[in-house]
C-alpha cells in the first residue's frame, strides 16, 4: 500500500505491482480455492514440453485431463494457448487456475502493448507471470512460457510459488521425468525448427506411454517472430514435421 490515494475513489493510487490490473478476483495470497477438494478439481496431469532454437520455439503438450488421478475426464484438451502475439503458455495443474491465468495474461499483454506502443518482451511477460503465480488466486499451476522477441527465442518454466527459470528447453507436468529423458543429449540450440518439433513430440509420446496423467494425442505450437501456430493431433504420428 502506497501513501498515495486516488482523490476520487480513495483507493491506492500506486497499486499492487504484483497483482493483475483486471480480473484478479480477491488478490491477496492464495485464496480459499487452494483448499478445494483435489478429487473434484480437473487436473491436467500432463506433459508439456518447450524447446527454444535459433529460429523459434516449439511447445508440445498431451491432451488428457483427469479427476483425482483416476479418471480421464477429457481426451481432447488443448493445453497450449496463445497469450502474446509471439508467445504461448501451457496449462499445467488445475484447469480452472490455468485458464484464468491465461485470460489474465492475455489482457495484461494487450494493455501493455496499447499503452506503451510496443509488444511486451518475453522477460517482462515471464516476470509478470511469476508475480501473478506467487501472489494470486491462480493456484496450483506450473506452466511453460515460450516465445520470441527482439532478443530471440525463450522458454521459461513458472512454478506454483512464482519461481521463473529460463532454459534452452524445459518440461513440466506429471510426465516431466520421462519427457526429459527423451530430450536429454539430443537437443542442440542450432537444430532446425522441424527437428525441434519432432523432438518435442517424441518427448510427449514417451511420457504418454508410461505416465497415467498424460496421453490421448498431442498439441503442437510453433512460435516464430512471424507469430503463433497451434495444431492438435489425436494420432501422435501425424504430429511429426
Amino acid at each position: 500500500m502506497s501513501r498515495f490515494t486516488d482523490p476520487l475513489t480513495g483507493a491506492d493510487a500506486v497499486g499492487d505491482p504484483t497483482a493483475p490490473e483486471l480480473g484478479g478476483g480477491e488478490f491477496s495470497g492464495a485464496g480459499d480455492s487452494q483448499a478445494n477438494d483435489s478429487d473434484t478439481v480437473n487436473k491436467t496431469g500432463t506433459t508439456t514440453v518447450g524447446i527454444a532454437t535459433e529460429d523459434g520455439v516449439v511447445v508440445a503438450t498431451d491432451m488428457r485431463a483427469s479427476l483425482g488421478g483416476r479418471f480421464v475426464s477429457n481426451k481432447s484438451v488443448q493445453k497450449v494457448e496463445q497469450v502474446h502475439p509471439t508467445g504461448v503458455l501451457t496449462l499445467v495443474g488445475s484447469v480452472g487456475g490455468a485458464q484464468s491465468f491465461i485470460r489474465t495474461l492475455r489482457s495484461e499483454v494487450d494493455l501493455y502493448e496499447v499503452r506503451k506502443g510496443q509488444p511486451m518482451s518475453m522477460h517482462a511477460l515471464a516476470t509478470l507471470a511469476g508475480n501473478f503465480a506467487r501472489g494470486g488466486p491462480f493456484f496450483a499451476i506450473n506452466p511453460i512460457l515460450g516465445g520470441v522477441d527482439e532478443a530471440g527465442s525463450h522458454v521459461y518454466s513458472i512454478d506454483p510459488a512464482g519461481g521463473v527459470m529460463q532454459d534452452d528447453y524445459t518440461v513440466t507436468g506429471s510426465g516431466m521425468q520421462l519427457a526429459h529423458g527423451a530430450i536429454e543429449g539430443v537437443y542442440d540450440r542450432e537444430m532446425s525448427l522441424d527437428d525441434a518439433r519432432d523432438l518435442a513430440v517424441r518427448a510427449v509420446v514417451a511420457a504418454s506411454e508410461r505416465d497415467t496423467g498424460s496421453g490421448n494425442g498431442v498439441y503442437v505450437s510453433t512460435v516464430t517472430d512471424e507469430g503463433v501456430e497451434i495444431e492438435g493431433f489425436d494420432e501422435t504420428d501425424d504430429a511429426f514435421a
Binding site: 502506497s2 498515495f4 500506486v14 497499486g15 505491482p17 504484483t18 501493455y112 511486451m120 518482451s121 522477460h123 517482462a124 516476470t127 509478470l128 508475480n131
Partner: peptide
C-alpha cells in the same frame, strides 16, 4: 519514483 519502481517490480524492466 514509486511508479518507476512499480514498473521494475512488475516487469523487471
Amino acid at each position: 519514483r514509486e511508479q518507476a519502481q512499480v514498473n521494475r517490480l512488475r516487469y523487471d524492466e
